Computed example of a mutant assay.
Amino acid sequence: MDMLRAHVCAPPAGRLCEGPVWDSRTAELLWVDIRAGQIHRAALAGDPPDLVKQATITLDPPLSAVLPTASGGVLAALGDNIFRVADDGTRTLLATLPLPRAGARLNDAKVDPRGRLLAGTVAEDRVAGSAALYRLDPDGALTALLTGVTISNGLGWSPDGRTLYYADSATFQVDAIDYDLETGTLGARRKFAAFDDGEPDGLTVDADGCVWIAVWGAGEVRAFHPDGRPRAAVAVGPAQVSSCTFAGPGLDILVITTAAEGDAAREPDAGRLFACTPGATGLPATPFADIGPAPADGR
């Protein structure tokens, strides 16, 4: 198993940085600070690669995810609402999720290979079974895919789009779920990877089908082959490693977000972004298909 180390990047620390995604249209990295309600953009430059901050949009916290759209704006998950946000900050409401508890909010979200949005929820008090995973179709239809979840988190698809990797962080494992690309429905579910020293948080999948998982509390990103064998571990530093994605024109730079929540705020570089070149190539992010036909080839 490869043992790697990430280096800290230039942007200043946030409190709960999450959801990094590479926007190939603008050649920029997008990410959010959930507690500050901010969407950040940065370009990659230098060797070793660093992030050069380009812009910040401040909306209403909690702001849990940002994702590109086919229409040119971004999707933003704010509280229990999903908005399309134009470059000038103008919002269009696309959906309101039926959250059953006070203090519940949207959490991690990703777009599937056909342009549908999958978005999970979490209750701030982490009551067992109080969260869910939803699918938002481009026509506005909202469907509950999983209920009885506690902390709906990491999402990512295999290169052929037929397997969804999913973390309910409270279970301390990532599951592999059969995924029907034609309908966006879930099939058989099985344990993929388990953790005894932290909670799986955000994740990403590379072009070889390896799954890179941020392990909250362990200070690492860990990668696994499609059969579940360990592939690599990336030492980050701060314990609260929240998510990761492949970025850059070649999608060969792993960018990692961290948090500075509670006592962890005293750790050096907590809440900063980190990067490394792990010898793998990521998959391009599919934009939410709010205009035009959805992709037909699975990616």
Rank of each mutant, 00 (worst) to 15 (best):
A128V: 07
A141F: 00
A132F: 00
R135T: 12
L155I: 15
G154K: 08
G140P: 11
A141G: 15
A128I: 06
P138F: 10
T143H: 08
V149K: 09
G154Q: 06
I151K: 06
S130H: 07
G148K: 09
L136Q: 10
D137M: 09
L145S: 01
T150H: 07
T143S: 13
G129L: 09
W157I: 13
S152D: 05
W157D: 10
L155N: 02
A144V: 07
T150P: 09
D139S: 13
L142W: 02
L136N: 02
A144R: 15
A132W: 04
G129C: 10
L133V: 10
D137G: 08
S158C: 12
Y134H: 11
T150A: 05
S158G: 12
Y134C: 05
L145D: 07
W157V: 14
T147V: 14
G156M: 13
L146N: 01
L133I: 08
T143W: 00
S152A: 12
L145Q: 08
G148A: 03
D137H: 00
L133P: 13
L145W: 02
S152P: 04
D137L: 08
L133F: 03
L146C: 05
R135I: 04
D137F: 08
G156Y: 05
L133H: 06
T150R: 10
S152V: 09
A132N: 12
T150K: 09
S130P: 10
L133T: 13
L142M: 10
D139T: 11
W157K: 07
G148Y: 04
L155E: 08
A144F: 00
N153Q: 01
D139R: 05
S158Y: 13
P138R: 11
L146R: 15
L136V: 12
L133N: 01
L146H: 09
G148Q: 03
S152T: 03
A131F: 01
T150I: 03
L133S: 10
L146P: 01
Y134E: 00
L155M: 02
W157E: 02
L133G: 02
L155S: 09
A144Y: 00
G129S: 08
W157H: 00
L155F: 05
L133Q: 03
D139P: 12
L146V: 11
A144T: 15
R135L: 14
